[in-house]
Amino acid sequence: MKILHETVQTIPRLPFKYYEHDPLTDINVAPHWHQGIELNYLVSGTTLKFVTDGQTNEYRPGDLWTTNRRVVHSASGPTEVDWVEFGLIIDDDFLQTQIPASANWQLTLNGAASSKTHPQAYADVRQQLVTIHDLLTTPTTDLLRLQILSHFYQLLVTLGQTFTVPLTATTVSPNLTLTDTVMTAINQHYAEPIDGNTLAEQFHVSLTTLNQ
């Protein structure tokens, strides 16, 4: 199965990419990844199956969840349902510039379970995200951009304070130079067919080392 690098339209002078499900298409999304952290909100529809690195979670209308950077993920659900879903992909360079510790973030926001554990913070993230969504329906002026940023910054604060844990030793790459080199190559050639064996051969490492 081909894994894609997802490209979403960037909004000028805002540090995130915004996406909204197109009602003229089905909800199924092929396995893909991107550099930044993704925040998703399923507004309406039915049960959505969301797979991250081979693990399946089910989300229902009202659920918020995050996908960590560089994690392969996909979505699937019934084609006859009227889906409403939107979210943000946070620019990783911006995030790490503003919050250097975020390089070590592992996001834990995960639907209903997070809502029960941290109801107020969960509601705050949803409100900030919905407000950003509503503001983006009008042409973006300088003042509106500042207003959007104010909600975006508050969203980051809540995520960072409540829905992150440090990466464990086993999740940190033992070869950061190799990781950066390979990620640069993928970013440069994401539109071309890429697989693990080819990358391992290109960088003279085993497939096991590359996957780690």
Rank of each mutant, 00 (worst) to 15 (best):
Ile132Pro: 02
Arg126Thr: 15
Val43Tyr: 05
Gln161Arg: 04
Tyr41Arg: 00
Val43Lys: 00
Lys49Leu: 12
Ser114Ile: 10
Gln120Cys: 05
Ala200Pro: 08
Pro15Arg: 10
Lys49Met: 14
Asp124Leu: 14
Val51Ile: 12
Asp53His: 12
Thr198Phe: 15
Ser115Met: 07
Gly45Val: 12
Gly196Lys: 02
Pro139Gly: 03
Glu6Ile: 01
Asn57Ser: 06
Ala200Glu: 09
Ser114Asn: 02
Gly36Lys: 00
Ala169Phe: 11
Tyr19Phe: 15
Trp83Gln: 13
Trp83Ala: 02
Thr137Asp: 07
Tyr19Ile: 11
Ser114Phe: 13
Gln212Ser: 09
Arg13Ala: 06
Phe86Ile: 13
Leu14Ile: 10
Thr117Tyr: 02
Ala123Arg: 00
Tyr153Gly: 03
Gln55Gly: 04
Gln147Gly: 14
Asp26Val: 03
Gln188Gly: 08
Ser206Leu: 08
Leu159Glu: 00
Ile194Ala: 06
Lys49Trp: 14
Ala113Ile: 07
Leu95Lys: 06
Ala121Ile: 15
Gln35Arg: 05
Asp53Asn: 13
His151Pro: 13
Lys116Leu: 09
Glu80Lys: 05
Gln98Cys: 12
Phe152Gln: 01
Ala30Met: 05
Val43Trp: 08
Arg13Gly: 10
Leu207Asp: 04
Ala169Ile: 09
Leu207Arg: 01
Leu109Tyr: 01
Thr108Pro: 02
Ser76Lys: 05
Ser102Val: 13
Thr25Lys: 15
Gln212Trp: 12
Asp124Gly: 12
Thr7Glu: 09
Gly77Val: 11
Asp92Ala: 05
Ile99Thr: 06
Thr171Leu: 09
Glu58Lys: 03
Pro78Glu: 13
Asp124Ile: 15
Val182Ser: 02
Asn28Trp: 06
Phe50Asp: 06
Asp53Lys: 04
Gln55Ser: 06
Thr52Gly: 05
Ser74Ala: 11
Gly45Gln: 09
Gln188Asp: 14
Thr141Arg: 04
Met1Asn: 06
Thr56Ser: 04
Leu156Glu: 00
Thr158Ile: 14
Met183Gly: 07
Pro78Ala: 09
Ile132Gly: 01
His204Gln: 08
Asp92Glu: 07
Thr52Arg: 03
Leu39Val: 14
Thr140Trp: 10
Phe94Gly: 03
Leu155Val: 10
Asn187Phe: 14
Asn211Ser: 10
Ala113Val: 09
Glu6Asn: 03
Leu178Thr: 03
Pro15Glu: 00
Phe86Pro: 07
Leu109Gly: 02
Arg60Pro: 13
Leu39His: 00
Val8Gln: 13
Ser115Leu: 10
Gly111Met: 12
Thr131Trp: 13
Thr131Asp: 02
Pro15Asn: 04
Thr179Tyr: 04
Ala101Cys: 14
Asp22Thr: 05
Val157Arg: 00
Thr158Tyr: 04
Ile194Gly: 07
Ala75Gly: 15
Asp195Lys: 00
Tyr153Lys: 03
Ala30Cys: 02
Phe203Lys: 00
Gly160Ala: 08
Phe163Arg: 00
Glu20Tyr: 13
Pro23Met: 01
Pro119Asn: 05
His151Leu: 14
Arg60Asn: 14
His5Tyr: 07
Leu207Ala: 05
Ala30Leu: 03
Thr47Leu: 05
Glu38Cys: 11
Arg60Thr: 15
Thr108Gly: 06
Ser44Asp: 13
Pro78Gly: 06
Ala191Lys: 11
Leu155Trp: 01
Thr46Asn: 09
Leu109Cys: 07
Thr209Cys: 03
His73Lys: 01
Leu109Asp: 01
Glu58Gln: 13
Ala185Arg: 07
